[in-house]
Amino acid sequence: MFGRPQLVFLLLLLVAGLAWLRLPGDEQRVRTALIMGTLVEIRLAGDPQQFNPAIDAAFAEMSRVEKLFSSQLAESDVSQLSFSTEPFQVTEESAALLQRGRQIARQSDGAFDMSLGALKQLWGVETENPQVPSAEQLQQALAGVGPEALQIEGRTVSKSNPHLQIDLGGIAKGYAVDRALEILRRAGVTSAAVNAGGDIGLLGSREDGKPWRIGIQHPRKQDELLTTLILTDRAVVTSGDYERFFEKDGVRYHHIFDPRSGYPARDCQSVTVVAADVASADALATAAFVLGPQQGLQLLEQLPQVEGLLVAADGTLHRTSGLAALEP
């Protein structure tokens, strides 16, 4: 049976093969990196030797997008635009994303806003020293803010107010995931999931041909799911008030702001949006969260290929008409 050394070698190979098959969610198939301040996880099926370079490229692409849109990096397109007082030439890519953002800003009556940089800095929810600003400070930070705050002509972007600070927090992460998926698709990957801190982009179906099952976090009970969505080739983004927040004098202040008041939006606990691409899902989840359950639902309902699940402040669930078809 083990007559020759070669056979022992073959046995070794078989054992290795079996070990590889046996381990569910094998190490090779899930890789993580820290990009854009969150944990990015890429999982895909197939030969790791073949696809590891593709995953590397996808991570690199996300880092590139981060450098383009980060408000922390002084040389990024976004930072330069924020600091310039005159019309500024951005890259074609930035112009295209700003255009898309502005479209969603218009669709949502300004609930989604890319010009809240100053407001976010003022609150500093994600920093070590968050604060609750005064009405005067808020008024200053909101000056000139709105869906028409940015005029985009070709690659030239001009701000209605020279002090306006740009923040693409509600769309850039989703866009980075879209880019990563595009890189994977071009590399010949047919089944992959990219998850950047809850911004999930799906390429194809699972490696076993079945659709992906995406669990939706319950906004108040950490151990529970609201539901599970069954999806192929879609994007899912959840925005919740439980993600990043600070508490002061017993009040919880989270990171999703209502541009009308300058305060964190209060009408929802969380909003999950399913869309064709992650950037749109990301921006729409923010928009619907700010609009609240009724208007938010209306916004998502009127858009094609978009579904949503909203949890109102009182904990009631609001579903778009097509969502039930995605649930088991």
Partner: peptide
């Protein structure tokens, strides 16, 4: 025969528990 072979294979050559899956 097979049990003895696998036992020695495990002890001396392939110290990996998945050999027992064979």
């Amino acid at each position: 025969h097979v049990s003895g072979q696998l036992l020695i294979a495990w002890l001396l050559i392939i110290r990996h528990p998945s050999i027992w899956m064979l």
